[in-house]
Computed example of a mutant assay.
Amino acid sequence: MANTPSAKKAARKIARRTAINQARRSRMRTFIRRVEEAITAGDKTTAADALRAAESLIMSNVSKGVLHANTASRKVSRLNKRVKAIA
């Protein structure tokens, strides 16, 4: 447990930041799930639209420090590959 005032403040800031990052990560996963559901359904246009929205959100999460840039690129790349594979 934090003892000094500065450590207590740091703990409060970390808790606040963690909650924000969890919300952002959850929203990102929802967008990714929408793409995957469209892929499973075989609907290429819906999948492409969902991918565009998901890619935008994923990359904005990179700039906010929620996700590492390489991780985001990998996720987008794999989703894109699966969307293109829809016949």
Rank of each mutant, 00 (worst) to 15 (best):
M1W: 11
M1Q: 10
A2P: 14
A2K: 14
A2C: 09
N3L: 15
N3C: 04
T4R: 14
T4C: 10
T4L: 14
T4G: 10
S6N: 14
S6R: 15
A7C: 10
A7E: 14
K8Y: 09
K9A: 12
K9T: 04
K9G: 02
K9Y: 08
A11R: 11
R12K: 15
R12Q: 13
R12I: 01
K13V: 07
K13W: 02
I14D: 06
I14V: 09
A15V: 00
R16L: 11
R17I: 01
T18R: 14
A19Q: 06
I20K: 11
Q22P: 00
A23N: 09
R24I: 00
R25Y: 07
S26N: 13
S26F: 11
R27F: 07
M28A: 09
R29C: 00
R29S: 07
T30Y: 12
T30H: 12
F31D: 06
I32C: 11
I32P: 06
R33N: 13
R33F: 08
R34V: 00
R34Q: 14
R34A: 12
V35H: 03
V35Y: 04
E36C: 06
E36L: 13
E36S: 10
E37N: 13
E37H: 11
E37Y: 11
A38S: 15
I39Q: 06
T40D: 08
A41E: 12
G42F: 09
K44V: 05
T46H: 12
A47Y: 06
A47R: 05
A47L: 06
A47I: 02
D49N: 15
D49P: 04
D49W: 10
A50T: 01
L51C: 07
R52F: 13
R52G: 07
R52K: 15
R52L: 11
A53V: 05
A53S: 14
A53D: 13
A54K: 07
E55I: 00
I58Q: 04
I58G: 02
N61D: 09
N61V: 00
N61M: 05
N61P: 03
V62M: 03
V62D: 01
S63A: 08
S63R: 14
S63C: 00
K64Y: 06
G65A: 05
V66R: 05
V66S: 06
L67C: 03
L67Q: 02
L67W: 03
L67S: 01
H68V: 00
H68N: 09
N70A: 10
T71E: 10
T71C: 02
T71L: 10
A72V: 01
R74E: 01
K75I: 08
S77D: 09
L79M: 09
N80H: 14
N80C: 02
N80P: 00
K81L: 07
R82I: 00
V83R: 06
V83Y: 08
V83H: 07
K84D: 10
A85E: 12
I86G: 04
A87K: 15
A87E: 11
